[in-house]
Design a binder for these strands. Structure first.
Lengths: 373, 373
DNA sequence: CCCGTTGCATCTGATTTTCCGATGCAGCGC
DNA sequence: GCGCTGCATCGGAAAATCAGATGCAACGGG
């Protein structure tokens, strides 16, 4: 409060004593119009929102708790809005205004990071928050991370594995900038860049009668017991493969775990439909699967790069990440016919260096607006 | 330089004496990673770029010239890039890096303004930089400005009238956020929202043989002398009306002024094709025109809201402006069948108030990156 | 060719802001 | 009931920012 007052006085004073080439209408700018409010305030606010605690935020920022407290208090009254609900002996809770500001504040800070970044054409550094759909992670993430850490050793790439819902929320609140995920259950407002389409396949035990064949029609499976991968988004997708043909599968078991499904099938408890196929195709308990191409016309599952705003509006770091994803998926054999490879990234090929401090998992605040997987 | 040094020392010192819940890897964050660099620096930089002078920028900001100088110097070495070329007794010139940063800096500052703005649901205030295509301005701008100033008296709406090229540049450098313009000659990267389509009409003098009729085929005009509105973008458009039918008009006169064309036609020097029609249809020298509907299938000229990123990513101020444009064009009778009216603006209907200090033209720096019209 | 002018950089003292550490205070939970 | 947690507030200290004066280099008119 004394802040706004002091500022205005200073302002007017200088206006009096300097030459004024233009009339800035001293009056009517009264309601503290954004001219105060500093980046520090935004940073502290975002940290506090992520940690749901000023104390923890202060610790993570290496400043005193009082600094965070006063900073946020100043921010609040210069915005004229309450951002947090303070629960006495508990943490903080974002108000509606706080939610609103959080995404924008993250946007702003990311934009500043990117502005700095873009003027250093030689190196990519700083931090990028990204996500990968959980079931996708074990297949591509290791290679993607490896590629990123060798090509850009100075980039702190922070990738979480999240569910579809979590990805939606993380993108809309800007907790992450990009995500590698299936194009299933994403909010319509989210922008996608299609990277690959992975086909559905059926799998049975090695001693199953169908194991002698290489492909199968879905109607041949409709009376077999099915083991369904029962995840929020994939569930409907696999069932739709049948229902879109007018068939109703006989779901015998449902599991939320990919490996549970596979081991059950390997032991002869039925067949399943899946997208991803581990190399070797061993199950955790040593079994193996026989996979069958599905002859029917089945829409494959699309792997996309999802973000709040389309490519081009992405930061340089995010564009580099997207390009690494494209590269990795292509190397994995998932070629997409019309894959738009045009989004060039203005980074020199590679900066081979020690693969030392790559991808540290430090300083990551817990459960910031979404539940950790 | 002493700045980065001091900061780092402080940082390390605190890290030593506080509890460190997370390892932040003190090293390797050496190249001044965006943590310094303030909004003030960005503001001063943008002002200096706009005025092409630190002295003028300082005056317009009511600060000492030394403040701008040191601020920009600090910004430069914390970015590790030179932003300006200093010409000794002349002004400043943006370097390539400076150009790059300018658009982003404007983006950031606008985003901050908007973040502040969005938390004040009752009023719209602050400043919005917009543009209107020159020949469009006299028809709609007065009404748009009137509507804006009565509904949002606290908004400083700064509208320039620009040519197509100038609009392209102003949008890409973020000198303006939105523009009301024809969809002609816009960069592909610019996002458009179609507001209306205005048809082509032909005009002749009142004593012209065709003046007895209400409509005409273009092939009837092909041998008549044509007076062409010869502006960079409209030129090709009007000629294409003929050439797309395989016709070649007989261009007798070319004028860059809308009114010159009209008065020539009214005096019987030929016919013309135009889009806009002033009410009354008087010319400056008192003449009048007879207008003829063109029977042939002619694509109308599209009036659009142009911006760097699509609606939705626009600031609240810009969305309000776009909505006022839609409203004004609709009231003018230019209804567009599929006009997407869905982009709701969360502002209460109107805040009727004194139409006092509306639309001041103060503090506008000259020729910032583009030539003034 | 000289010299006044222009325009940015630099220096110094002063003001303002920000920060730290300590203390206060209000609820939560054992 | 009482220790504990977590944010607010206060006072002194450190740091950044600023204004004004000065320096310096080049442009341009006479």
């Amino acid at each position: 409060m004394q802040r706004a007052g002091n500022f205005t006085e200073t302002h007017a004073k200088h206006a009096d004593r300097r030459l004024d080439p233009i009339d800035r209408r001293e009056v009517s700018v009264r309601p503290s119009s954004s001219r105060d409010l500093s980046l520090t305030q935004l940073r502290y606010f975002v940290a506090a929102a992520e940690w749901e605690s000023m104390t923890d935020a202060a610790a993570s920022l290496y400043v005193a708790q009082s600094a965070v407290s006063t900073s946020i208090a100043n921010l609040e009254d210069s915005l004229g809005a309450q951002l947090f609900i303070r629960r006495r002996a508990k943490g903080l809770l974002l108000t509606a205004s706080g939610q609103e500001l959080l995404a924008r504040a993250r946007d702003i800070l990311a934009a500043i990071d990117d502005a700095v970044d873009v003027l250093r054409p030689d190196t990519i550094s700083g931090r990028l928050e990204a996500a990968c759909f959980s079931t996708l992670a074990p297949f591509y993430l290791p290679e993607i991370l490896h590629g990123m850490s060798t090509r850009f050793p100075d980039l702190e790439l922070q990738i979480r594995d999240l569910s579809a819902d979590e990805i939606n929320e993380a993108i809309s609140t800007r907790a992450i900038e990009v995500a590698l995920t299936y194009d299933l259950g994403l909010d319509p407002s989210i922008v996608r860049e299609r990277l690959a389409t992975v086909p559905v396949y059926a799998a049975v035990a090695l001693d199953h009668p169908l194991a002698a064949r290489g492909e199968v029609h879905l109607h041949e499976l409709v009376d077999e017991p099915m083991v369904l991968l029962d995840l929020p988004v994939s569930r409907d997708y696999f069932l739709r493969a049948f229902t879109s043909l007018g068939l109703t599968p006989t779901v015998r078991h449902r599991f939320g775990s990919f490996e549970a499904v596979r081991s059950m099938v390997a032991r002869g408890h039925g067949f399943t439909l899946l997208n991803q196929k581990p190399v070797g195709d061993y199950t955790y308990d040593g079994g193996r699967l026989h996979t069958l191409r599905v002859i029917d016309e089945c829409p494959g599952m699309e792997i996309v790069i999802a973000s709040a705003s389309g490519p081009g509006a992405l930061s340089r770091k995010a564009r580099v990440f997207a390009e690494q994803c494209r590269r990795t998926l292509r190397a994995a054999g998932h070629v997409l016919e019309g894959a738009e490879d045009g989004v060039a990234v203005d980074v020199p090929g590679a900066v081979p260096s020690a693969v030392s401090g790559a991808v540290p998992a430090d300083g990551v605040p817990p459960a910031a607006g979404y539940v950790a997987a």
